[in-house]
């Protein structure tokens, strides 16, 4: 599993923090706003997106393990799917990305 801190993003790259369900308009708006080098972090209610068959998530997507476990999700490891992240991993992401947008 590649850790999220393996690459240094360009200055304009953005870390997107989403805490809404995939049915919330902000979720779709966030996907529209994503560009080259961006990373999508699913938090709180947004973690149900990992089980949502209607959406294809971007390759650089992670989800908070605590939120996923709480909702009975995300314990099965997947090769290419979203990366499970602890809060300390989230800190590594927020350290790396200069631009951070909450949706």
């Amino acid at each position: 599993m590649s850790k999220p801190d393996s690459k240094v993003p360009p200055v304009t790259a953005t870390l997107h923090l989403v805490n809404k369900t995939p049915d919330h308009s902000r979720f779709a708006e966030c996907l529209l706003a994503m560009g080259q080098g961006d990373y999508l972090l699913l938090m709180e209610n947004a973690v149900v997106a990992v089980a949502d068959c209607r959406h294809r998530l971007p390759p650089d997507t992670g989800f908070l393990v605590a939120d996923a476990r709480a909702r009975g999700l995300g314990d099965e490891p997947s090769e290419k799917g979203p990366q499970p992240l602890e809060y300390a991993d989230m800190v590594r992401l927020t350290d790396r990305f200069h631009r951070i947008v909450s949706w």
Binding site: K20, T94, I100, S102
Partner: peptide, 9 residues
């Protein structure tokens, strides 16, 4: 860094 924690839904 300014990290914003908004309401959910």
């Amino acid at each position: 860094r300014v990290i914003h924690f908004p309401g959910g839904a």
